[in-house]
């Protein structure tokens, strides 16, 4: 690469010409003719047209990555047999998601809903419909009933969330006056059956993120009790 006295690359005359054009007053301003045009040299040199030297330099680069990673794997192996290996020792940047949660996965991520409970395991919800009103996706469906305790007045007979419609905006959480609905960080809401994507009251109340997905009894798998 040949440079002129200003340190500019003379192999790319179009860049030099572009630098002689009026420069924008501040970064981001668009002025006529201020765009850079990059052009490759029109012809490959004789050496480049042979391909083989260029291929060899490419192989050198990939082989160096290969051997670097293999060296790191070897170190990892010797640490592994002594039981001191960590994820950072591996010669790869892979994270076994979702077996292993990414370290930058936010704990306040908005995911699956839960219904909070009172001390006697009844739902905290007072069936005020504020979450269903606030919901922009219209995915919350509540049927209210009269609660025996006159202080509480109402309770949800049914509380269904169509989780496949939900956009996880968190408005229901904001709207709730009694902190009855919350969004957990769990986002693994996949299933093969559409019926299982409608979460009912029992399911929302019994959700425990520490249990695996197989251990939960999904609403589509059992006869409805809250009708």
């Amino acid at each position: 690469m040949s440079e002129d006295k200003f340190g500019r690359n003379e192999d790319f005359p179009s860049i030099v010409q572009a630098q002689l054009l009026p420069q924008p007053a501040y970064q981001g301003e668009f002025t006529e003719g201020s765009l850079f045009t990059y052009r490759n040299p029109s012809k490959l040199t004789w050496m480049e047209r042979l391909y083989l030297p260029a291929i060899l330099s490419g192989l050198k680069l990939t082989a160096s990555v290969f051997f670097g990673n293999m060296a790191q794997w070897t170190i990892w192996f010797f640490k592994w047999i002594t039981g001191r290996a960590t994820e950072a020792d591996k010669g790869a940047t892979t994270i076994y998601y979702p077996d292993v949660m990414r370290p930058d996965f936010s704990p306040i991520n908005r995911g699956k809903h839960i219904l909070t409970l009172r001390e006697n395991d009844d739902p905290q919800c007072v069936a005020c419909y504020m979450c269903a009103t606030a919901c922009p996706a219209f995915c919350i469906h509540i049927v209210a009933g009269e609660h025996p305790d006159p202080q509480i007045e109402k309770y949800p007979v049914r509380f269904d969330i169509e989780i496949d419609k939900c956009i996880f905006c968190g408005y229901c959480e904001e709207a709730c006056p009694v902190d009855a609905i919350r969004l957990t960080p769990d986002v693994h809401l996949v299933d093969f059956k559409r019926e299982r994507m409608v979460y009912d009251k029992e399911f929302l109340m019994s959700w425990n993120p520490t249990r695996s997905q197989e251990e939960h009894v999904y609403p589509g798998d059992r006869p409805r009790t809250s009708d």
Partner: peptide, 10 residues
């Protein structure tokens, strides 16, 4: 496996 190691994968 070699393709994986060359690309920082497992």
């Amino acid at each position: 496996k070699q393709g994986a190691v060359m690309a920082n994968r497992i």
